[in-house]
């Protein structure tokens, strides 16, 4: 299990989801990914994407203008 980060600050919907999707393809099940965003839309889009694609949304925290979302990569068939 490894931990990774992804910086999508300044990008607007749906680019944060697309970049997350592309990054997750490189990872293994159980890895965690911390996504740094600024578009508030990511708050709903990334958890929705996780539910659809079988990944686990862990939590969201805010740090200044940044929204930081953590997801755990699920089993991908």
């Amino acid at each position: 299990m490894s931990h990774y980060t992804l910086d999508v600050r300044g990008l607007l919907c749906p680019m944060p989801v697309i970049r997350t999707q592309n990054k997750v393809k490189e990872l293994q099940a159980g890895d965690t990914l911390e996504i740094f965003c600024t578009d508030p839309g990511a708050n709903s889009d990334i958890p929705a994407w996780c539910r659809i694609m079988g990944h686990k949304y862990l939590d969201t925290r805010e740090q200044g203008n940044d929204i930081i979302i953590r997801v755990e990569v699920g089993e991908v068939d």
Binding site: P14, V17, I18, Q21, P40, S44, D45, A48, I52
Partner: peptide, 22 residues
């Protein structure tokens, strides 16, 4: 306003995967 990406909403409502391509 509550915001959602409608393509993701449709996929979730249908219970299917969605691949978003740049």
């Amino acid at each position: 306003k509550t915001k959602r990406n409608n393509a993701l909403w449709v996929a979730e409502t249908l219970g299917i995967k969605l691949h978003i391509i740049d």
